[in-house]
């Protein structure tokens, strides 16, 4: 897969944190979905969050640090809101092409996850 080697360090670090939050949110959504059973609508919410995290990772350089401890929150909606708030400090530039659809995807997911 292509990696983005032109993104600046601050934006890269922030985006990596966004990717980690989304990844954790997807894991939590799927864990809840599996507990609820095969008919839970949360399976598709988890899928949406996972695809958003794939979008975020695709924007990062190959050596981006995506490890680290999972976030403390377990609430999916809170994790998504935290991810959206982090994206606010990422500039919208050629080097961060893809941030706009990612922002839209996260905002859509927040709406979908918030009762």
């Amino acid at each position: 897969m292509m990696a983005n080697d032109t993104i600046d360090q601050d934006a890269s670090d922030t985006l990596a944190a966004v990717a980690r939050l989304l990844r954790h949110a997807a894991v939590r959504a799927w864990a809840q979905a599996e507990a609820d059973g095969p008919r839970s609508h949360l399976h598709l919410l988890g899928l949406g969050i996972h695809t958003a995290s794939c979008q975020a990772v695709a924007m990062l350089p190959a050596d981006a640090d995506l490890k680290g401890h999972p976030p403390a929150q377990d609430d999916v909606a809170q994790l998504l809101r935290a991810a959206e708030e982090l994206t606010r400090s990422i500039p919208v530039l050629d080097q961060t092409a893809g941030i706009s659809p990612l922002v839209v995807a996260i905002c859509d997911l927040v709406r979908e996850a918030t009762p």
Partner: peptide, 17 residues
């Protein structure tokens, strides 16, 4: 965590969803 997923596959999954 750093593994990449094929973006065409991501797009197809997103459209399906």
């Amino acid at each position: 965590p750093a593994d990449r997923t094929d973006l065409d596959l991501v797009h197809a999954a997103g459209e399906l969803r």
